[in-house]
Amino acid sequence: MADINLYPTPPASWRQLILLDDEACILASCDSIFCTKKLRETGILEFFPLVESIFPNIVELKPGHPEIRIHKISPIYRGLSGYYDFSFIRTDIDTRLPILWTIYDFTRLYEDYYKNLQQKHDIEMARELLEMKF
């Protein structure tokens, strides 16, 4: 397993906060990981099919509800080329009750996890093959 101490406190750019309305349009973004200018024209769903597929569930969230969190995402959006966690929560920071979408950049951690998992699966499948032969 990866040693967690190898992962120092992440830099400020490790997460991005985006406020969405119920039409999946961006109200505000800190743009710390990627620029959202292009997404502001059409809304985010066209670029993020993962969000599109659960957006009806996200819209149902009420303030105080637990977040919806999806781990280890490999987005197809070209501006995000690593591995991320997405979380969605309904906020009451203003009267519009926007949805707070937080993108956590865990690329480095998950890349190491990927290497370990690949090795584990390769060994497991080789073992299964040997067991079937003998």
């Binding site: 099919p49 280890k72 995402i73 990927y114 998992l117």
Partner: peptide, 8 residues
């Protein structure tokens, strides 16, 4: 191997 999720 895949470690999480990819959607299209």
């Amino acid at each position: 191997t895949s470690i999480g999720v990819k959607v299209d």
